[in-house]
């Protein structure tokens, strides 16, 4: 087992016996630490098919398990439990219960594309991470992640007006996730700016907040995109065997 994957042995699966004798040999202490063996019986045979039906997951079947994705991964360097190779393995094997143990961190993929760059099999692991996070939410295993709340707010603005405006995106996100607007770093940034007083900059920011930027002639594109989004959402739910929208 590669050294960077030692964390795959979960602490609860490690058993140490104070006193243990096997076939007349005393194996107490250090030698009595075992990884508990277990039988997996609860396969979800449709798991790979479901993930590959969602955008980004299409190429998961190509994986060779070389581990280049995990080796290259930005988030793995911070949190060793974040292991794309392992999750791809679990999905392909249909080991849903095992996958669900990591359900709260899969959304943390930062889309840096280092995995996709390194992958020799064109699996697009970044896309697989997004599809898996999406699958977890559609199936009701996790609530909408902060990332999804951000994506939704951002995309709605684009679909409605053709453009986004930074402060509106930020306000929407803090409201959507129930956070205060007076984040200490935000206050530090604004006060730092005011001290230097680039008047024009502040006026422009204020102007954009009141008169939101829009793409002229966007109406028809907006309607076409909204229609298409509904179509995609219905197709996603159908692929996962879920009822029509709303009934999770």
């Amino acid at each position: 087992m590669p050294i960077h994957e030692k964390t795959l042995i979960r602490p609860e699966n490690l058993v140490t016996h104070e006193h243990l004798e096997i076939d007349g040999v005393d194996v107490s202490g250090h030698w009595s630490t075992f990884i508990e063996s277990r039988a997996v019986t609860d396969y979800n045979e449709n798991l790979q098919e479901e993930i590959s039906a969602l955008a980004g997951g299409e190429n998961i079947h190509r994986c060779w398990q070389c581990g280049s994705c995990t080796n290259a991964c930005t988030v793995n360097a911070i949190n060793p439990d974040f292991n794309p190779r392992y999750w791809i393995y679990l999905i392909r094997m249909g080991m849903e219960e095992e996958l669900l143990r990591d359900k709260d961190i899969i959304w943390q993929c930062v889309s840096c594309n280092k995995c996709t760059y390194a992958c020799p099999r064109d699996v697009v692991p970044e896309g697989v991470m997004k599809a898996t996070a999406h699958w977890l939410e559609l199936k009701g295993h996790t609530p909408e992640s902060p990332s999804t709340i951000f994506d939704d707010g951002f995309s709605q603005q684009v679909f409605d007006t053709g453009k986004i405006e930074d402060s509106r995106v930020m306000r929407g996100f803090f409201k959507g996730t129930g956070q205060s607007l007076t984040q200490p770093w935000l206050v530090a940034m604004v006060t730092g700016l005011i001290k230097r007083f680039p008047l024009f900059y502040l006026i422009r920011m204020g102007w954009q907040t009141v008169f939101r930027p829009k793409t002229r002639g966007w109406g028809r594109a907006s309607r076409a995109i909204h229609e298409y989004v509904e179509e995609v959402e219905a197709a996603n739910r159908a692929a996962l065997g879920l009822d029509a929208k709303g009934a999770k």
């Binding site: 955008a55 889309s111 999804t148 951000f150 994506d151 939704d152 951002f154 995309s155 298409y228 995609v232």
Partner: peptide, 10 residues
């Protein structure tokens, strides 16, 4: 980096 997570074709 956001709209692609709704749908890459959009």
């Amino acid at each position: 980096m956001e709209v692609k997570n709704i749908d890459p074709n959009i």
